[in-house]
Design a protein around this nucleic acid. Structure first.
Lengths: 186, 186
DNA sequence: CGAACTGTACCGTCCAGACGGTACAGTAAA
DNA sequence: TTTACTGTACCGTCTGGACGGTACAGTTCG
């Protein structure tokens, strides 16, 4: 459907997507204009439109790249099939290593934010991803509701990052992280 | 700071805020224009600008009304000072009654969404509110991290509503809700 | 009482600027 | 020659906001 991803092309393409995320996270979703993205990526507006023929196409690619990335990370992190493995992977992929959690909005957050501001319909790929993830969580061998509870808490965590809410204290954060891991222990 | 709330004025003011929420929730944050809001409220654009001299003022009032509402609900719902009382109030205010939880985006969600899309700076009142809430949660007499875990899960819940992610099954939802209540039991 | 005046609550119009998108000519490299 | 752009010029539309005007309920004052 899109141009074939030759190596140079795909490099610029990714630079453009990176730039879009950068713009959203530093200036807010309403600053996501074609010109701003092109400037941030060091590409002309025409060049941007060569890769993404419309703003929607850009935002849509943003969402798709994020979902694919998380999907891939989840697959590799949950290779071991023991009870709770997928739930633990969900925690780890979103929050990072215990004792070294993310502290700023990641690309997931900002990308989704931009897409959401533009057109809620662009979140369709995310929705179907969540459908898959939720199904796997519920079949993860944990007591009913536990995996979902963990998912919601983790989602609440990155929401807090996106909204740039006051950070949790290190003590609280480690306590939360520990409890989450315990809940996800099969 | 504003005009005295004569009965008619404040009624229209609230209608305008309701309309703004309605626009965001039905057409997305990018559709939040002065004209759209005025039309939805059955008021002329000039009339809208009489109450809110700028778009920022409108969005800011939106956020403030939401925060005040939640704040008030939290105070009344956590009157009893037993351990976990505030945490239980947080659950109840956000998710609603057990067995009758919210299923669509509430005004909190949509209002914040609109503000966020417009200018992240407008979320300042929300941030300071979260600072207060978090402090009270941590001093709620529950084991370390539990109240925060509950908060994050609840936040994740309404995030899921805002993004319109696939709904959880009734079974899962009640299990989650039950576990939350258990965690918040002093 | 009633005329004069005041403040509130709008309405309708207009405009500069921003934005998405198009068109097209040119270029550098593989 | 094709691919992958750059750069410029431009168009139509939408939007925030400014502005002038209107209706009318109160209040003040002679």
């Amino acid at each position: 459907m899109n141009a074939p991803p030759t190596s140079k092309s795909s490099a610029t393409r990714n630079r453009l997507l990176d730039a879009a995320e950068q713009v959203v996270s530093s200036q807010g979703a309403s600053a996501l204009t074609l010109e701003a993205v092109a400037a941030e990526a060091g590409v002309s507006k025409g060049g941007l439109l060569y890769h993404f023929p419309s703003k929607d196409a850009l935002a849509s690619a943003l969402v798709r790249r994020v979902v694919d990335g998380v999907d891939h990370a989840l697959v590799t992190a949950s290779a071991d099939g023991s009870p709770g493995a997928f739930t633990r992977a969900y925690i780890q992929v979103t929050m990072g290593e215990p004792g070294h959690v993310h502290t700023g909005p990641d690309s997931m957050s900002t990308a989704l934010l931009g897409a959401l501001a533009l057109d809620p319909g662009l979140l369709a790929p995310l929705k179907s991803a969540y459908e898959r993830w939720q199904a796997r969580l519920e079949a993860d061998g944990l007591p009913e509701g536990i995996a979902t509870l963990v998912r919601l808490a983790v989602d609440g965590w990155w929401t807090s990052l996106v909204l740039d809410l006051p950070p949790l204290s290190g003590k609280t954060l480690t306590a939360v992280r520990r409890t989450l891991d315990e809940l996800a222990r099969g």
